[in-house]
């Protein structure tokens, strides 16, 4: 068994695709019309055969109360690996990305938390100092 897909609920698929490609730098993978929405996935250019992220519409009524609660407490939905959190923070800040937590060294790990503009907080993390 292997991990091929990871789903993230997004408020708007167009805005999500723009953020995940233009800001975070992922590549579009699948974009297939499915009725009102699309089967929309992105993949990391550093692992083009790796896990794809499904940008899934957040319209189910259970999604909003769940996300509102975890976002209010600053809890990231998932975490992406980067080589240098401080450099990535500086780059994304210059692109207008909002962070709820600037780079913080936690023992061997450095993390930061950003807002993906389509409903989620996302952590970026690196092993080693910032």
């Amino acid at each position: 068994m292997k991990i091929t897909l990871l789903s993230i609920f997004v408020d708007n698929q167009d805005a999500a695709l723009a953020f995940y490609t233009e800001k975070l730098g992922f590549l579009p993978a699948s974009d297939i019309p499915m009725g009102e929405h699309r089967w929309l996935t992105v993949v990391s250019p550093e692992a083009p055969d790796g896990t794809q992220i499904v940008l899934e519409p957040s319209e189910h009524p259970a999604v909003k109360p769940f996300r509102d609660a975890i976002v209010a407490d600053g809890i990231p939905f998932t975490s992406f690996g980067v080589k240098d959190v401080q450099a990535e923070y500086d780059r994304l800040l210059a692109l207008g990305v909002t962070f709820t937590q600037p780079p913080m060294v936690q023992g061997p790990v450095t993390t930061a938390v950003l807002d993906d503009t389509v409903g989620n907080l996302i952590q970026i993390a690196a092993m080693g100092g910032a």
Partner: peptide, 14 residues
């Protein structure tokens, strides 16, 4: 301006 998540991370790690 720390979120609950950040405070919990700091308590656990530091």
């Amino acid at each position: 301006d720390q979120t609950l998540f950040e405070i919990c991370s700091r308590l656990a790690m530091k």
